[in-house]
Computed example of a mutant assay.
Amino acid sequence: MLPLDAIDLDTLVMALENQYMDGETFFWLDPATGRIELWGEEAADEADAEGWDVDERGGLRIEPVESHEVYRDMEDFIAGERDPKCRTRLQRAVEHSSPFRHFKDALYEFPARQTAWYEFHDAIMKRRAIEWLAEWEVVDRTEARAAIERLREPR
């Protein structure tokens, strides 16, 4: 197992958020080093030439978070919004087609809440990243729980 600080959580979050990869291109984590790499045609060719592959190295494929989970995050944020005008506008935004785009567009009307959303979303995604690491036994579960609790504390 690795210490949590051996993992670049920002890179792991980015990999967990990346919904635009095809089946042949993905991010993976090397549990021996904590490095996160992009796997694609070029990386596969290089690995083949060097005589290794992701599975032999024990690499863990990083699957992106399902869009319904991110949608639920937006709903949770909206539910906690105190400004009724902002809450109503955001709620209407997610009821349209392309709710993610409409949500971000609606946030631009409320600059102070835009910052709050990004902080809220960042904390949720870091918790997911740490939970993912603990689930795959890359980091110690006790250390992971403590880190998640620190992320839940109000700032």
Rank of each mutant, 00 (worst) to 15 (best):
H121Q: 11
R57N: 08
E50W: 02
E95M: 05
W39H: 13
E95V: 00
R82N: 06
A112T: 10
P64H: 14
Y71P: 03
W52N: 05
A93M: 01
R113G: 07
R57G: 10
F77G: 08
R113K: 09
A112W: 06
G40S: 11
F120E: 07
R72D: 09
C86P: 01
D76C: 14
A106F: 02
D83S: 13
H121C: 09
D53F: 02
A112Y: 06
D53C: 12
I36T: 08
L107S: 11
D53G: 09
A93F: 01
A112H: 14
F110K: 08
R101L: 14
A49N: 03
D73Q: 12
T115W: 09
L90M: 03
L90W: 01
T115G: 09
E66K: 12
I36C: 11
E41R: 13
S97K: 06
F103D: 05
A116K: 10
P64N: 14
E66W: 02
F110V: 06
E119K: 13
P64M: 12
G59K: 03
A93R: 00
G58P: 05
D73P: 06
I36P: 12
D55Q: 12
D76N: 15
M74Q: 11
P99T: 02
A43E: 14
F77H: 06
C86I: 08
R89C: 10
W117H: 10
E95A: 08
L107W: 04
R82L: 11
H68R: 13
R72G: 10
A47T: 00
S97F: 06
E75R: 08
W117R: 11
C86R: 05
G51Y: 04
Q91C: 00
E37F: 10
R113Q: 14
E63H: 10
R87P: 01
R72E: 09
E37T: 09
H68D: 14
D53K: 01
D73L: 15
Q91W: 01
P111Y: 12
D105W: 01
E75F: 00
L107F: 11
F100S: 05
D55M: 07
R87N: 02
E37D: 10
I36Q: 10
D55L: 10
L107V: 05
W52A: 07
F120M: 09
R89Q: 05
E63S: 14
R113C: 08
Q114G: 10
D83K: 07
D122R: 14
L38P: 04
R72W: 09
R61F: 06
T115K: 13
E69M: 12
A44V: 04
V94G: 01
V54Q: 05
R57M: 13
G51W: 04
R87V: 00
S67C: 05
A44G: 03
Y108L: 15
P64Y: 11
I78H: 03
A116N: 06
S98Y: 07
E95S: 07
G51E: 05
R113E: 13
H68V: 12
E81C: 12
R113I: 00
R82D: 09
V65K: 10
E56I: 05
I62A: 11
D45Y: 04
L38D: 06
W117L: 09
C86T: 12
W52H: 09
Y71C: 01
E56K: 11
E109D: 15
E63D: 15
A79H: 03
V94R: 03
I36M: 11
D76H: 09
R61Y: 07
E109W: 07
G80F: 02
D53E: 05
Y118M: 13
